[in-house]
C-alpha cells in the first residue's frame, strides 16, 4: 500500500486532495503559544475569583487547569500541535466562561446547571461507581451488538443469495424489523425471565435489523460478473460467499454495522433505565432520582465518550478492511 504512492498514477486527480486543504496556508504564528496562557488564565479565574457558593473541588480544578496550561507551553513547540491549538484555546476560554457564569456569578438555575468543579468532584469521588457502570454497559452492549451484527450479516447474506431463504424470512423481517425494539420492551420483560436476557434480546434485534437490510442490499448489488470470474476458475459457493460476495458488499455492510451500533446505544440506555439494575443508564436514572445532577452530567460525559469511542473503533476497523476504496468518510 505504501508503495502505490510512488507510482506514476493514472488518476493524478485523486492523489493530493487540494480541495479540502485550507485556502490560505495556516499561519501557526502565535496561536500555539497562546494555548498554555489560556489555560493558566482559566486556572487564575477559578482560583482567585471567589465562588458564589460552597462548591467542592474548586482548588483541584484550578490546579488541574494550571497543570494543563504549564504542560501546553513546551507542547507548543511540536509542529503537530499547531492544528489543535485553536481548539485548546477555545476549550480553555469556554471553561473559564462556564466557571465565571455559574461558579462565580450563579446566573443559571441550580441544581440543574452544575459548575465545572461539581463535575470534577463527581469524577474524583465517584469514579469507582462510574467505571463499574461503564463496564456493565460495555458488557451488556458487547453481547447484544455482536450477536446482532453476526446474525444480521448471516441473515443478510441468506436473503441476498437464496430464494428459498428469502421466501420464508423476508416477510418476518418486513414485519418485525421496522418495529422500534423499544416497543417490545414491556413484553420482553414479561416473557423473558431475566431482565439481562431480555435486554440482550432486544439489543440484538435493534442492531440486527439495519445490518440485515444493508448486507442484503450490498449482496444483491454485487456485479454478477464477479461471480462469473470466480466460477470459471472453479470456485464453489463457499468461496463465492466468503471471498466474493462479502468483500464486495463490505462497504454497505459497514454502513449497516454503523447504524446498528447507534440503534444498540439507544436500546442500551432504555434497557438500563427501565430494567437492568446496573450500567450508565441505571446510574443516570439513579442520579436523577436523587437530584444529583452533577452525577448525571458525569454519566452523560462517560456515555458520550463510550459511544464515540466505540464508533471510532468501528471506523478504524472499516478503514483497515476497506483500505482499497478510492475515498471514504473519515470519522
Amino acid at each position: 500500500m505504501t508503495q502505490t504512492t510512488s507510482f506514476p498514477l493514472h488518476d493524478i486527480a485523486t492523489a493530493p486532495d487540494t480541495a479540502t486543504a485550507p485556502r490560505r496556508a495556516w499561519r501557526p504564528g502565535l496561536l500555539p503559544w497562546l494555548a498554555g496562557p489560556a489555560w493558566c488564565c482559566a486556572a487564575f479565574v477559578t482560583w482567585f475569583w471567589p465562588d458564589a457558593d460552597d462548591f467542592p473541588a474548586t482548588d483541584s480544578l484550578a490546579i488541574a487547569c494550571a497543570i494543563i496550561g504549564i504542560v501546553l507551553v513546551p507542547v507548543a513547540l511540536l509542529p503537530r500541535f499547531s492544528a489543535k491549538a485553536p481548539w485548546m484555546i477555545a476549550l480553555a476560554l469556554g471553561l473559564a466562561a462556564w466557571e465565571g457564569v455559574q461558579a462565580k456569578l450563579l446566573l443559571l438555575p441550580r441544581p440543574f446547571f452544575g459548575t465545572p468543579q461539581d463535575l470534577l468532584d463527581v469524577f474524583v469521588t465517584d469514579w469507582r461507581k462510574l467505571g463499574d457502570s461503564l463496564l456493565h454497559s460495555l458488557g451488556l452492549l458487547a453481547v447484544g451488538y455482536i450477536t446482532g451484527a453476526v446474525l444480521g450479516v448471516v441473515i443478510g447474506v441468506g436473503l441476498g443469495r437464496s430464494a428459498r431463504f428469502r421466501y420464508w424470512v423476508q416477510p418476518i423481517i418486513r414485519l418485525v424489523g421496522p418495529l422500534p425494539p423499544v416497543a417490545l420492551l414491556p413484553l420482553a420483560f414479561v416473557i423473558i425471565p431475566s431482565s439481562w436476557a431480555a435486554s440482550e434480546a432486544l439489543m440484538t434485534l435493534a442492531s440486527a435489523f439495519p445490518v440485515i437490510v444493508l448486507t442484503w442490499s450490498g449482496i444483491s448489488a454485487v456485479d454478477p460478473a464477479y461471480y462469473d470470474v470466480a466460477r470459471t476458475m472453479g470456485a464453489r459457493d463457499r468461496f463465492l460467499v466468503l471471498r466474493v460476495a462479502l468483500p464486495a458488499a463490505a462497504p454497505q455492510i459497514f454502513v449497516g454495522l454503523f447504524m446498528g451500533l447507534g440503534m444498540s446505544f439507544a436500546m442500551l440506555v432504555v434497557a438500563e433505565m427501565l430494567g437492568v439494575k446496573s450500567g450508565l443508564g441505571f446510574y443516570m436514572q439513579w442520579a436523577q432520582g436523587w437530584a444529583a445532577y452533577p452525577n448525571m452530567y458525569a454519566a452523560l460525559v462517560v456515555m458520550s465518550l463510550m459511544c464515540t469511542g466505540l464508533i471510532t473503533i468501528l471506523f478504524r476497523i472499516r478503514d483497515r478492511i476497506l483500505g482499497w476504496q478510492k475515498d471514504g468518510l473519515k470519522w
Binding site: D223, A225, Y226, D228, V229, A230, R231, T232, M233, G234, A235, F239, R243, V244, P247, A248, A250, L322, W324, Q325
Partner: peptide
C-alpha cells in the same frame, strides 16, 4: 466451469478489494 477454460470479459472485472497481485492469484486462491 473448469480451470483449464478461462474467460476474459470485456470489462477487466478485477476485484477492487484485491491488489493487482491478489487479483492475479485469484485462481490459486480458489
Amino acid at each position: 466451469p473448469g480451470p483449464d477454460r478461462i474467460v476474459m470479459f470485456q470489462d477487466p472485472t478485477l476485484y477492487p478489494w484485491r491488489t493487482v497481485r491478489a487479483n492475479v492469484a485469484l485462481s490459486q486462491d480458489i
